[in-house]
Amino acid sequence: MNLKLKIWRQKDAKSKGGFETYHVENISPDTSFLEMLDILNNNLIHEGKEPVVFDHDCREGICGMCSLHINGHAHGPDEDITTCQLHMRKFHDGDTITIEPWRSAAFPVIKDLAVDRSAFDKILQAGGFISVNTGGVPDANAIPIPKKDADESMDAAACIGCGACVATCKNGSAMLFVAARVSSLAKLPQGRVEGARRAKAMVAKMDELGFGNCTNTGACEAECPKGISISHIARLNREFLSAKLKD
């Protein structure tokens, strides 16, 4: 396949960016999208140009490091996958592919296609944990947990923190990310203990960091590589409101 790539280039956080056009040739349909970018970068280095910076690591869809807005979609035009799992067979010979970084006020661009997602860490630091120290905990089977609850907790816990929800939301809202963590812990008896505190602290931090307000469009769920449901947002709302009403 021969492809035309329109890629966002930006020297650093402070510089003004813009699109550059590149061409890659003889790409096998079995190549992954990021391998295609590797090939482009290899060519650029040989041509004496600067390679394109993009975040990536595990390349098997679990670390959440890769991002990229490809042809209008977070993680590209395939369902339930991350960019690293996207393969070139999803494109056609001669296509023009537009590649942009995540766009959101809370995720500033660091360079080219890499953005700063440290806001997510900060939200989790505000309360995305169960306050237990190492040691001194009861036996793992001491508290039975209904399979359905454990499964639902796991559904939410599948979040990889990639930021596609924020990137795709027209409101720049992080509600799906926050909801996934709150919901995952809320479904477990261990997490219920400080459920109210957690919901309040995480939402407060999310608001403080400049994320937008959820308007229930469901775009986050549609683009989430792990298919996390917005029903978890309903649970977050419930947790948060009931906590606030008790204050």
Binding site: F19, T98, S104, A105, K170, S173
Partner: peptide, 9 residues
């Protein structure tokens, strides 16, 4: 919250 620069596509 959406930011100043919007997606081109």
């Amino acid at each position: 919250a959406r930011g100043v620069i919007r997606y081109a596509e």
